[in-house]
Design a protein around this nucleic acid. Sequence first.
RNA 1: GCCGGAGUGGCGGAAUGGUAGACGCGGCGGACUCAAAAUCCGUUGACUUUGCGGUCGUGUGGGUUCAAGUCCCACCUCCGGCACCA
Length: 857
Amino acid sequence: MTACQGTAMSNPASPIAPQADDEARKHDFARIEAKWQRFWVENKTFATHIDHNKPKTYVLDMFPYPSGAGLHVGHPEGYTATDIYCRFLRMRGHNVLHPMGWDAFGLPAEQYAIQTGTHPAVTTQKNIATFRRQIQALGFSYDWDREVDTTDPTYYKWTQWIFLQLFKKGLAYQAEIPVNWCPALGTVLANEEVQDGKSERGGHPVVRMPMRQWMLKITAYAEELLSGVDTLDWPEGIKAMQRNWIGRSEGAEVDFAVEGELGTLRVFTTRPDTLYGATYMVIAPEHALLDRLVTPDRHAQVDAYVEAARRKSERDRQDAGKEKTGVFTGRYAVNPVNSAKIPIWVADYVLGGYGTGAIMAVPAHDERDFAFAKAFDLPIIPVLSPDGEPFAAELTEPFTDDGLALNSGPYSGMTTQEFKRRITAELADRGIGERRVNYKLRDWVFSRQRYWGEPIPIYYPIVSVLDGTPLSESGLSPSQVADMVHTDSWRVMYGTPLPVHESELPLKLPVTDDFQPTGNSEPPLSKCHDWLYFERDGRWFARETNTMPQWAGSCWYYLRYLDPHNDQTLASPEAVKHWLPVDLYVGGAEHAVLHLLYSRFWHKVLFDLGVVPTNEPFQRLVNQGMILGEDGEKMSKSRGNVVNPDDMLREFGADAFRLYEMFMGPLEATKPWATNGLYGTRRFLSRLWALYDKPLAATAPDDKIRRALHKTIAKVGDDTANLRFNTAIAAMMGLLNDCTKLDVLPIEVAENFAVILAPYAPHIAEELWEKLGHEPSIGLVPWPSYDPALCVDDTIEIPVQVNGKLRGRLVVPADTPQDVLQNMALADSNVQKFTEGKRIAKVIVVPGKMVSVVVVG
RNA sequence: GCCGGAGUGGCGGAAUGGUAGACGCGGCGGACUCAAAAUCCGUUGACUUUGCGGUCGUGUGGGUUCAAGUCCCACCUCCGGCACCA
C-alpha cells in the first residue's frame, strides 16, 4: 500500500517551498478529469457486452437534439442521474447497457440552411461534435461504440424499413388533410407557428388547405396503448396524460330520421339515457351530409357560416372560447324514441373529426348544449334528476351527473346505468343504433413538406392523363420527365403507392444545395429531379417527396443501441431478447405524450411482427424536473438567465458540477439553479482531497468512525438504488465532516469512501484510488458491503414527551428495557416539572424510540 | 373547468406516524493575514430567559391519535398538462 504522498510537512522550509507545495497538493480537477476521461475512452472501460452471468439492466436517456446552442444545464441533470445509477449497478454486478446518440433530423438545421446556405448535414455534424465533447467532458460512462445518429443512412435505413412494415400491414395510408399553408412564405406551418390566422414569423396570412399526407393508423392500437398503460411503472401524471390523450369513451350511435326522405343522420352519444331530452341536433360544418340537408332558403346563411369556420385554424376555432355560434339548416329530424320533431343546426362546437360529426343536443344535461340552447333560445327539457322528481325551478345550469330518469316514457325512474344498457339494446333491436366506443386519439400525420428528414420509401407510376397508360418512353432525362409531369398530359399516380424494395434501402436523401421552399405546396425534394424521377423496366416513376417527421427516428432508437452495427436487421434477436425492455428511461416531461405514445405504438407493431419480445418498450420511466434560472424563471435567452455548462465546468470541474446537479434536490422536482451551490460541492471535493493527505493508518478505525462509515455505505447504497441522489450526497458530506476531525485516516475508511463516491464523482475517485496504490478503474470495484450491526448506535437519545410536548431527553444504551426507560423518564427533573401534582394516566414506551407520558388534572 | 404534482428557516432542501429543519448555500462571530481572497473553527427558525428552560412554528380551518410536516375531511395558493372529444 502506497502511503499518501501528502505527508510533506517534513519538507525543509524554504520561504517559498511550503506555498508551492500547498499549490501542488490542491485538488487539480482540470488535470485529473482530463486524465481519467482519456483513460476511460482509451481503455473502453464502459464498453458493454452481453453477459448472461449477470442480471441485465438497460438504462436509457432521452437522446438530445443537437442544437446549435449546445448543451444547457437541464440536459446533464438526467444524464448525470443515469450515469450515477449505471456506475452503481455495474459495481453491484449488473450487466449494464447505457448508450447515447443524436436525434439529429429536424427543422432548425433546415432553417439555418435556408438562411445561410450551409447544408443541414454539415450543421448537424458540427453540432453533434459539440454535444459529444460537452457530454464527454462530464465524464459519463456511455458505451460510445453504440452511438447512433438518426441522420446516418445506416440508421435511417431501418427507420424506412419499419415504415415499409407499417405500409405492408395497412397501417400507413394517404389522406387529404387540411394543413396550414402560408402562400407568402411558400411553406406549410405547424399549428404552433400560426397565430390568429397569421404566420408567427412575418405575420403573413395562413389558410387551411387540404393536402395529400401520409398517415399512420395509430388508432388501430388505441385499445392496446390504453390498456398497456396500466402495466407500466411510470409517474401517475404521465400515465394519466396518456390515458387522457387516447381518450376512450363508451356510448352509442343512434340514427335519427331526417324529414323529407333524406335518410338518417347518425350521432354518437355517451348519454343515450338522455335521448328523450334531445331538443335539437347539431352537425359539424365539415359534415358530408350538410349540403343535402340545408333547405334552399337557408343556403346562403349556412354557406357563409361554413366558409367562416373553414377559414379558422384549428387553434383559432378552439381559442374562440365558449362563445357558441351556429346556423339553423332549415331541416328537421325525428327523435326515434318519442317522434319529436327537432331542428338540425350547424355549429362549429361539433367537431367533424370525432364520433360521427353530428350530435343530438340535450341542453338540460350537457354544458355545451346548454350554452348553445341559451344563446339561440332552444327548448331545455330535463329528463333526469338526482331523485327522479322534476326540478322545482327552471334549470340555471345543466345537470350532468347520473341520477334517475324522468319524462322518459317507459324508462322513467330508471337509473342512468340501467337506462343506458336497456336503451342501447333496444335501439340495436330496432336496427337504428348500436353500442360504440370512440377515442380522441387521431391517426398520426406522418409526412412533412421538408428537406431534412428521412425520405419516405414510396414511389408512384407516371401515367397519361388521357388514357392512364404508363410513361414508358426511353431515353428521357429526369428533367424532361419533370417538364412532362408539369404539363397537363402526364401525372403522378399518387393513388398507387409502391413500396421501395427492402434491398434498396436506405433510400438516401439526395444531396442538394437548394433547400429553399418551392413556393408552391410541393416539398423541397420535388426540385431534385435526378432523384425524384427514375426509370425501371422501361417505365418512369416518381418518388414520394414528403419526408418523415422528427418523431420517426426517435421512435425506435432504443432498439438500434442494442446492435448498432448490424446491417442485416435493425437489431439481432439475441440482442433484443437479452436487453429489452428498457429498465429505466429518464427524460423530460415534455415528451409525456407524443414521443412516448408514438414509440409505444411502433414497439407494439414490431412486437406483432415478432421483431421484439416485449409488448412495451419502457418498463420504468422517470421525469427529471426542470431546472429554472437563478431568478426562478424558466431559462431562456430572452430572460438572460441561461447557465452554460461549459463555464461551470471550467470553474468548478465535472465532479463538482455533477454533485451539484444531484444535490440541488430530488431528481423529479423542478428547482432553481444557484451557482453559489457549486462552491459547496467544490469545497466538499477539496476537503475530501485534503483528507487523503492525512497519514494513513492500517489499524482498524475506532468504533465511532467505523459506525459512521458503515451507516454511510448503507445509506448511499440504498439512496442510489432508489435514485435519491441528493440525500446520498448529504450522507457523504456528513461522513467527510466526521473524518475531518481525525488525525490519521484509517485505510478501511479511505478505501471505502472512495468507492462509494465513485459513481458520483468518478474522476476524483479514480485518482484517489490510484493514490491508494490500486489499479484503475475504481468503477470495476465491487460495491462495499456493510455490517448492519454497525449501522445502529449502541447509545441513543430517547425523547420524553408529556402530553405530546418534548420535556426531556434520555441518553441510554440502545437495548435499555421498557420499564427502565419508563422509570428514567418519570424521574427526569424537567419531566417532573410537568407531571407534578397531576395524575399519570398512561405511559407509552416505544423501546429505542421514545417515551410518552399522559397526565391529567 | 378537468387531470397530475407541490406548499417546511433568508435560500435549495431533509425527516419508516415518534426529538421538525439533516446536508448545503447565505448570514454572523472568531483564527490565519499588513490587508483581502481562499482556508479553518464556532454559531445561525422566531420570540423570550443571565442560565436551565419556556412559548410559537411545516399554506388555511377542522378531525383521528399518547404523538401529525406525515393519516382523514374541507378549503386556499402555485407549477405542469389537457381543454367545446358529445
